[in-house]
Each structure stands twice: as C-alpha cells, then as structure tokens.
C-alpha cells in the first residue's frame, strides 16, 4: 500500500513540476517565437504580395478583435496612402492546416495578391500551391467577397492537377478570409484613417 502511494506521489510531483516549468518557458519564449515566425514564414509571403509598398508592412501591423480571435493585419502604403491590408487565414489541406496570406485593396475590395505561408502538403504535389506562381496569380484582381471554389466544385479557380484537396484548402481559407474582412471592415477603416495621419 505504501508503495502504491509513493508511486502516485512521485509521478504526480514530477508531472506537476514539469508542467510548471514548460508553462514558464512557453510564456518566456512566446514573444520571440512570434517574431521569428514573422521574419521567416509570414515575412517573405507579405513582402511578395505587397510588392512595391513604400513602407515596411511587417513593422506597420496592428491587431483587431474578430469574434473571439485576435488577428494581425499588415498595411501596405502605396503613393503615400495605406492602400492594401494583408492578413492570414487557415484552410484544411491534405496534410493539415494551410496558412494563406491574402492582401486586399481596401478602396476597391479586390485581391492584391495571395500567398501560401505554412503547409504540410505532399512535396511536389500539394506543395505547388506555394511554389507555383500561376496558381496564386489566378486570385489576383478578383473581387474579394462571397465564396471561392475550385472548378470541379463549380467555382472559378483552376485546381492544381493532382492536388484538388490542397486547392480546396486554399479556396476554403480565402472564403473564410472574406468573412473576416466583412466583419472587421468598419474597425479596419477607422484604423487606416488614423494611420494616414
């Protein structure tokens, strides 16, 4: 009996101690991890779709509350005016979540550019969503509203051959993004107005 109690006790103390330690380290590194992700994953995607912006979209970012989630928005300044905002949403791909960064022109509500940030798709098949510029280019200048669908589902986007699920993940993320955009638009306009001054 004493053995039993000792076993439970030792394991409990060990687990509790390790939990506490990990929570502390996670808290301590969270800020740095976010920064690293911005430089190495989101940064290149943002730079690519907001090409030619006269500011640094990564340092000119702000957060807005969307339902129960906080989202980061990146501003691109063209000709002295904040013209485009970029933000990230996630869609269900073949091997997990696909992160998609989309930039929208706030005046015309049209897509400026789309880029895949994180994914675990099959290399050489689904991964072309990130590497094949023709796929992402299809979205450019499309009206940013309603739903996006691939052609096999009766939509307007050519799916990558052999990677329909991945393509659906990307369009799914964009459909989600239009919803987010709709919801935060009033807040976004306010922020951008303040930004110009």
């Amino acid at each position: 009996m004493r053995d039993m109690i000792k076993m439970v006790l030792v394991l409990t103390i060990l687990a509790a101690f390790s939990g506490g330690l990990l929570a502390a380290i996670k808290d301590g590194t969270a800020e740095n991890i976010e920064k690293q992700k911005l430089t190495f994953v989101k940064g290149p995607a943002i730079k690519q779709i907001l090409e030619g912006a006269s500011n640094d979209p990564i340092s000119d970012r702000f957060k807005l509350q969307d339902q129960d989630q906080e989202r980061s928005f990146f501003v691109g300044v063209y000709d002295g005016k904040p013209k485009a905002v970029a933000f990230e949403t996630f869609g269900k791909g073949f091997g997990g979540d696909i992160g998609v960064m989309v930039a929208v022109d706030v005046a015309t509500d049209r897509i400026v550019g789309v880029s895949v940030t994180t994914h675990q798709e099959t290399p050489g098949v689904g991964s072309r969503a990130k590497t094949d510029p023709d796929f992402a280019a299809q979205f450019t200048d499309k009206a940013f509203e309603g739903t996006f669908k691939v052609k096999p589902d009766g939509g307007q986007i050519d799916a990558l051959s052999g990677a329909t699920v991945t393509s659906r993940g990307v369009t799914g993320a964009l459909t989600q993004a239009t919803g987010v955009y709709e919801r935060v638009k009033p807040q976004l306009k306010e922020k951008l107005q303040a930004f110009g001054n």
Partner: peptide, 16 residues
C-alpha cells in the same frame, strides 16, 4: 519529454 519540449521551444525562439 520535459527537456525535449524545452529544446523545441528554445529552438523555435532563437534558431527558427
């Protein structure tokens, strides 16, 4: 497992 998670977090924070 505790130390592995520590390594994982630290690596994410400093050697992404």
């Amino acid at each position: 497992a505790t130390f592995v998670t520590v390594v994982e977090l630290v690596m994410q924070a400093y050697a992404y």
